[in-house]
Design a protein around this nucleic acid. Structure first.
Length: 299
DNA sequence: AACCCGTGGCC
DNA sequence: TGGCCAAGGGT
């Protein structure tokens, strides 16, 4: 069949890469000489956490633990303290575990192969490809929430991305990448940056967009998002909030604390106990011989 | 697929 | 104020 005309490429990769080269923020993990380890730490910290909050913590971690084996040698409690209030402390716990595996099984060097990365704790579809592309310059589709939004708008003409589908999302982005490793990796970085600083969720800065002339969403008159409603998770009153309060007490204490100190942070005793139990099960908290509670390895 | 997992800033 | 969002991953 030849009746289907070729669809014009809505994303001009070279234009986008040039724009990135001229305007990219000088984030420290993008600096020359940053290792795969530095990139992995940054990508893990950036999961669901804004850049500005990650910056000082990443600097501290790189100074303190410049290699995976350095982090692996630290106690879990030290790692959780250094993670501070970045949120989702299980990310820190899994990064600690990944560091131990990298030190033991991969010569203390973060792997460059996507499947090898995926086998490490806390590294999923996004982070594995981000490390392969940004640390090692590989041609792999890197799909995060920003890239999904850019593709939804520029390629599909929709107001925003619908529900994620790893397989379809990877294929969409793969189709945009040039054949060679280096330019593909450069485009991956540029797509993410565009989604963050220009093609934003609210009030996108289309007047500053380097590819606005080819954007399907522009041509369609910038229609509003028409997909299924996105579910927003509650936080106030949830176990997540209570676990955070409990852990905050332990982070603020130099050593083990008594049960009463933990009881003070939440009035609902049933929920409090359930959350403390879950933290013990998760290995984020340990109970001492005298029935006090501490961060793992700190008693 | 749907739900759980922290934290803080913005409008 | 409270919904919404932020470079996701695990189950």
């Amino acid at each position: 069949m030849t009746t289907s005309p070729p669809r014009p490429a809505p994303i001009d990769g070279e234009t986008l890469v040039d724009w990135f080269a001229a305007t990219a923020r000088p984030l420290p993990w993008r600096a020359p000489g940053v290792t795969g380890w530095g990139v992995l730490v940054s990508e893990t910290m950036l999961q669901q956490t804004p850049v500005n909050r990650v910056l000082p913590i990443w600097e501290e971690w790189m100074r303190r633990w410049p290699r995976p084996s350095d982090l692996a040698a630290a106690s879990q409690g030290e790692v959780l303290r250094a993670w501070g209030k970045l949120g989702y402390p299980r990310r820190a716990q899994r990064l600690h575990q990944a560091a131990a595996a990298i030190a033991a099984d991969h010569g203390d060097v973060v792997p460059a192969d996507v499947d090898t990365l995926l086998a490490l704790p806390g590294i999923g579809a996004y982070t594995a490809r981000a490390v392969a592309a940004f640390a090692y310059g590989k041609r792999v589709p890197v799909v995060d929430t920003n890239v999904r939004r850019v593709v939804a708008r520029a390629v599909h003409g929709a107001g925003d991305a619908g529900p994620p589908s790893t397989t379809r999302d990877l294929a969409d982005v793969d189709a945009l990448l040039p054949a060679e490793d280096a330019p593909a990796a450069a485009l991956s970085a540029a797509l993410m940056e565009l989604g963050q600083v220009v093609c934003a969720v609210r009030s996108p800065a289309c007047e500053r967009c380097p590819i606005a002339a080819d954007c399907a969403w522009q041509h369609a008159g910038r229609p509003a998002y028409a997909g299924p409603p996105k579910k927003v998770q509650k936080f106030a009153g949830t176990d997540r909030q209570v676990r955070g309060k409990l852990l905050d007490v332990l982070r603020d204490s130099p050593g083990p604390v008594r049960r009463e100190q933990l009881d003070a942070v939440w009035s609902d005793a049933g929920q409090r106990d359930r959350c403390l139990d879950s933290l013990l099960v998760d290995g984020l908290v340990e109970q001492t011989d005298d029935d006090r509670f501490a961060l793992p390895g700190e008693h």
